[in-house]
């Protein structure tokens, strides 16, 4: 996780496997906060501050996103 290279325009590179990924703005925010070791609650709070979204939806989407990261062996 810590090794991931995340570019401003949404490209994610995993140096240990050589795989590249594309993510969007909210995805990038989450990845960066995960790299800083922030807990999920804090990530949700931050999303709620910046974006027009309900808490319920943000939480659900975060869990979904984390599942995708696991799926891609990024977590």
């Amino acid at each position: 996780m810590r090794d991931l290279a995340i570019s401003k325009n949404g490209f994610v590179f995993n140096p240990s496997t050589g795989e590249s990924f594309r993510t969007n703005e909210v995805g990038r925010l989450i990845l960066e906060m995960l790299q800083e070791g922030r807990p999920n609650e804090e990530i949700v709070e931050r999303i709620l501050e910046e974006y027009d979204v309900s808490k319920e939806e943000a939480e659900r989407d975060l869990l979904d996103f984390l599942n995708m990261l696991k799926f891609y062996n990024l977590l």
Partner: peptide
């Protein structure tokens, strides 16, 4: 405006 977080492999 909120857009769901997403990630996909290239």
């Amino acid at each position: 405006p909120y857009i769901k977080p997403s990630i996909s492999k290239i």
